[in-house]
């Protein structure tokens, strides 16, 4: 990590407010971060478009039409003489009119799993959804590969990987987070490490592998994928579940950026420079 000691001595760029500006995020980290942000945005909305063609999730190799292996189903049906959006999860049904199954369109309601603002394109178009999804799938995988290579060489991987000492600090770190006490010493705390490592080494690989398990071409070559994930339809269900986990990560990520000081956080992921606070990690 480069500090601005020389600049400080010469009186230039001395940050106000006691902290020191440090070069926190390398170019490779910043670039891949934004490529992921773009890829995941498009993959989420095009993925929901694809899902909308069959808004049901099943467990096993196949979809149960003559038997029941459905775990999630989004649809619309007559309830008491009126059309309602109904979402069923593990057998429990919920009225989701206006949000899922029966959604606003124009001046009325349309029988569609998701409202237009949740999909790319905003109307029903599976073909375009697939084109967008697979383009950004390639971009995401390429970015992950570049990031892994760069981070292995520039030390980013080491500063991200949770150590045994980190894990011992976990309870205290959780308590700090709950009290919204953030230490800005320019290093990742253990919860950060765990969530970033979780996304990069668990969630994204799972997304890629379950996505590939849905490809009839790929599983002809690697049928083991069907066994690992318990069938094509289970893989599709896991793909959807991990999407929800990534969405949760995104929400918490944005929340933490806001709580930790959005200007400083944004500057570091755009320019690389981050202002550390005067206090030191105990």
């Amino acid at each position: 990590m480069v500090t601005l000691t020389e600049a400080e001595e010469s009186g230039e760029n001395v940050p106000k407010g006691g902290g020191t500006l440090v070069y926190r995020q390398r170019l490779a980290t910043r670039l891949t971060h934004w490529l992921w942000a773009i890829s995941l945005f498009f993959m989420l909305l095009s993925g929901l478009q694809i899902f909308m063609a069959r808004p049901d999730l099943y467990i096993g190799q196949q979809s149960g039409f003559g038997f029941d292996n459905t775990v999630l189903s989004i649809g619309a049906r007559q309830v008491g003489g009126e059309m309602r959006g109904v979402t069923s999860l593990f057998g429990a049904s919920f009225d989701t009119t206006g949000w899922l199954g029966l959604v606003p369109q124009g001046d009325g309601l349309a029988r569609k799993a998701f409202p237009g603002w949740l999909t790319i394109p905003g109307y029903r178009d599976l073909a375009t959804g697939r084109i967008v999804h697979f383009f950004f799938a390639w971009l995401l995988v390429a970015t992950l590969f570049v990031w892994l290579l760069a981070s292995a060489f520039n030390g980013h991987l080491r500063e991200l990987w949770p150590s045994g000492r980190d894990l011992k600090r976990l309870p205290r770190d959780v308590a700090d987070h709950l009290r919204l006490r953030f230490v800005h010493d320019g290093r990742y705390n253990v919860l950060q490490k765990l969530s970033y490592a979780g996304v990069l080494f668990v969630a994204l690989p799972l997304m890629i592998l379950t996505g590939l398990t849905m490809s009839p071409g790929v599983v002809a070559k690697f049928p083991i994928l069907l066994d690992v994930f318990g069938g094509r339809q289970t893989a599709r269900t896991i793909h959807f579940a991990v999407m929800l986990a990534l969405l949760l990560f995104f929400v918490v990520h944005i929340l933490m950026v806001v709580l930790a000081g959005p200007i400083n956080e944004l500057r570091s992921i755009v320019t690389g420079w981050y202002r550390t606070s005067a206090e030191k990690r105990p």
């Binding site: 909305l45 369109q105 124009g106 237009g116 603002w117 790319i120 394109p121 905003g122 109307y123 967008v132």
Partner: peptide, 13 residues
């Protein structure tokens, strides 16, 4: 659908 749609700007795709 593109009226009042957040992602509607991608509809030309």
């Amino acid at each position: 659908a593109s009226t009042a749609s957040l992602a509607g700007c991608f509809d030309p795709l």
